[in-house]
Design a protein around this nucleic acid. Structure first.
Lengths: 247, 247
DNA sequence: CTGCACAACTTGTCTATACAACAGAAGCAG
DNA sequence: CTGCTTCTGTTGTATAGACAAGTTGTGCAG
């Protein structure tokens, strides 16, 4: 590859690091102007497209913001909101190096509750598919998954074997995920949840409410309740992640 | 601008939408190969750089993955992990259209507890700065912020007036954030927390443990505890967000 | 002074080309 | 058959140029 100066640094990376250092030291304060594409390309003796790439990637990382016709500026640090990654429970457990298994407790059709109806765009009390599954981390019950599924989008849901395949896997296959929203809450486990997770009635739980959409509309609505003493969500934020490409 | 076909669609966007449609309909299954940059540039009668941009952006969005010398492929849907945005409490409350205020309860130096010492890279029982603040959403106590601050990085912390400026704002100014990690847990409020948040002893709370870093190292370690019945975190995932640039 | 046209500068899109780095297949020498 | 080289196709980086589109200030006509 073409290198900037014999040492192995790529040109656009060198420019990014220069700008980042100015921002991190406070040398270029919030909302101050950064050099234009043309200025950078001249100072670093690179083409405009290379300078542009540096500015572009820093913008995607939230370090800068740009407006056409005006210029590029240092973004305000409060917009550096952390992003917490939410994975499905099976991946999460396997990532810990533990063994994941799931046990199906219930799989049926039932009259749609009001909350679920509005979430999935169904009519109250019309039939909706429902599955209840306990996820185990090395034989320890970790999460109770109560899932309502739109029967118009996934008519064969009740025929599946969810001891061998999680609903998440099945739904991903038949109705590819295009969109989802989540709510994270701390709740007290109800009697039902206590029983299946084998926890006491005063133990706080993390409840993730997840609604998923496919191309045609809302597909499923799920309560994922985890025992608070056994489960936590971890997140990470790094504003100067150097390599955006080539990972 | 140059447009692909009189109608106002940008060329690289048209290519992105074409690829996305193939992926979403399942026409191009997981791990299947997508056309190379050269093939796309020929099919769409654009330059290679334009085709490349489409593939590039889809890769950043997690729809594709690419390896040099091999090709571009459809990413596995399970890698579509949702990203939950964690903002600071003041922004969160203002975004709801409510009024945020904060009351300083305690601001002192104390011997560093073991957990904090290991988090901040300090020695146990050496002095560490500590602040305790209650955040209010329209007069209702919402979050208790217990924050330990590294005295070597922020020596003037105890001299600040945290009734007029939140610790987060002050720290952002004096030690720009470069990195942070978070843990989200569901916990039961202890007696102390109950008192300040005016909640009962069995009420579950969301506790966000946040550690922040600046250029020189760990800066602060905070427990942000919110009443579960009053607070929730919301997240959103959209795998086909069309406009990556120009927002 | 006001309002409009214009110039200068910025970012955004696109092209055509070149070379580098890498992976895998093909072909050849042993 | 084994091991090596070579070739081909792929993605990655970089260049130089062109035009489009938006913003802002300048200067001129009224």
């Amino acid at each position: 590859m073409q290198r900037s100066n014999d040492s192995g640094t790529l040109k656009f990376v060198a420019i990014k690091e220069f700008i980042l250092s100015q921002v991190e030291t406070g040398n270029w304060p919030e909302h101050s102007r950064v050099p234009s594409e043309n200025e950078l390309s001249e100072q670093f003796a690179v083409s405009r497209m290379t300078a542009r790439r540096a500015l572009q990637e820093l913008t995607e990382q939230g370090v800068l913001y740009r407006t056409q016709g005006v210029g590029s500026f240092v973004a305000s640090p409060k917009s550096q909101s952390a992003l917490l990654e939410i994975r499905n429970i099976a991946d999460e457990i396997q990532a810990r190096g533990h063994f994941h298994s799931a046990q199906l407790v219930q799989l049926t059709s039932l009259p749609c509750p009001t909350v679920v109806a509005s979430a999935l765009g169904l009519i109250r009390n019309e039939p909706v598919f429902f599955s209840l599954i306990v996820h185990y981390d090395n034989q320890t019950p970790l999460q109770l998954e109560a899932r309502y599924v739109n029967p118009h989008r996934v008519p064969l849901y009740l025929q599946q074997d969810f001891n061998s395949q999680t609903p998440h896997e099945y739904l991903s296959a038949v109705a590819p995920l295009t969109e989802a929203d989540h709510i994270i809450e701390a709740v007290l486990a109800d009697e039902f949840t206590c029983k299946h997770l084998k926890i006491g009635p005063t133990e706080p739980c993390l409840r993730l409410t997840r609604r998923t959409f496919s191309r045609d509309g809302a597909v499923s609505f799920a309560y994922l309740t985890s025992a608070g003493s056994r489960y936590r969500l971890g997140g990470h934020l790094n504003i100067n992640t150097r390599p955006t490409t080539a990972n």
